[in-house]
Design a protein around this nucleic acid. Structure first.
Lengths: 239, 239
DNA sequence: AAGTGGTCTAGACCACTTC
DNA sequence: AAGTGGTCTAGACCACTTC
């Protein structure tokens, strides 16, 4: 076993064991070098592993932080491995298409307990509840059901929903979006969803359940998006 | 722009431009150090990028090789980014479940032209065609439609299909499976598939189209698998 | 100014493949 | 034995954040 693996495994154990609690800061790379008696690059590589596994986030100039992590599903399903994926960019158009939104709900509520748990909220705390249909060049591409804690993303206005919430978060609020944990499924649309997406009831949808994290490890978004037909989800697996 | 990015971009250009052709070997790390005037770790990091992007595979002791890459879909779909995913382990049981297979077809044919293209085959070359239903503890978890070139995976027998083809490839043939490129969609089952999976016609399936690569960059498998209900596809995206 | 993580070097040593 | 990629070091320097 390589040194970086030894360090990574030890740190994983200490995170799941609670020595390093959710949202807490890890020792700096220099301190970890001393603690494990290895060089900085070895620590770096070990922390790369933790980041890939979705356990921590890192901020240059600030430090590394333990993520508040998704509750594990108890489905005996996915016998293929959990996975790691790069390329998070919200849902900006990257092909010059014109992206619009139709807002079907925008309210502040106490989220269901499973959503609250994903977001690290108490059950009596408030979150925005947003239902949007996203269109590219007038064609419906997705329905998004989103919850965001009001104290993590303050002062969200309806106007922002027609543009990009992510730009509001990164631009106006000066926060940094770091990563997302996703689960993909196939589902059938409801009657309402057929209406919103202009599809028939026999067209399946690709559902993506997602928890988004800021760069300090705080979950800022729980969302379920459902995509018709033309949507594909691509990935490259290695090793 | 960091040095490793400069190197990575240059190499990407030379791969897509044909200077380094599919299945050819890249210069060694030492040679690349000299060519770019940078240290070995910088070259390593640049090549990590290429590997993540699915462009090359690397073999300790042998060298780095350009992959024969998936033809790009011309769908204007997935406006989220293409992605990178770790954790390829065939479909072994990792939870102690008993995995079985029902073989519905096992023949040798000339594959359709799009499949041949993915596998880097001429249209008049032969491939195995396999249809299997995979069961875990007696419960149907997937249908797999698989093509494998007979000259890449020689002497495949029906007996192997009831166990793990991957174990045959890695164990008996001594080849090494390196990576897979995947596309995920939601689809409806055919009548035949409902029968095989013991589901009704209104249950959507998660479809995973996949090209598998050996560690020398050779595509060895084109497969489409379709999963009912209980299957989930997980990923963690970063940055 | 002090502290953080990120990049980079030059070189050592190792694991593995090929001949 | 020679060549490949992978790990690791000790230290320099940089970009960025926090105070």
């Amino acid at each position: 076993m390589m040194k970086y693996e030894t360090v990574a495994n030890d740190l994983k154990g200490k995170i799941s064991g609670g020595t390093y609690a959710a949202n807490s800061q890890l020792p700096s790379m220099g301190e970890l070098c001393d603690m494990y008696g290895v060089s900085k690059i070895t620590i770096k590589k070990a922390m790369d592993e933790l980041e890939q596994a979705g356990l921590i986030t890192r901020r240059r100039g600030s430090g590394s932080f333990v993520k508040k992590v998704i509750p594990q599903s108890n489905k005996l399903s996915n016998y293929e491995l959990s996975s790691q994926m790069m390329g998070f960019c919200g849902e900006h158009s990257n092909t010059g298409e014109k992206v619009e939104s139709v807002v079907h709900d925008f309210s502040v509520i106490c989220p269901p307990s499973d959503v609250a748990e994903c977001l690290g909220m108490d059950e009596d705390q408030f979150a925005y509840h947003i239902i949007r249909v996203r269109l590219a060049d007038g064609k419906p591409l997705a329905i998004e059901y989103t919850y965001m804690p009001i104290d993590v993303i303050p002062d969200l206005r309806k106007k922002t929903l027609y543009a990009s919430i992510y730009e509001y978060i990164e631009g106006d609020l000066g926060l940094k979006i770091d990563s997302a944990h996703r689960i993909v499924r196939a589902v059938m649309p409801t009657a309402e969803e057929c209406d919103w997406l202009s599809i028939t009831e026999d067209e399946p949808l690709l559902e993506i359940e997602q928890v988004g994290y800021l760069d300090d490890g705080t979950p800022f978004e729980y969302s379920v998006s459902k995509h018709p037909d033309s949507y594909e989800f691509r990935s490259i697996s290695s090793k």
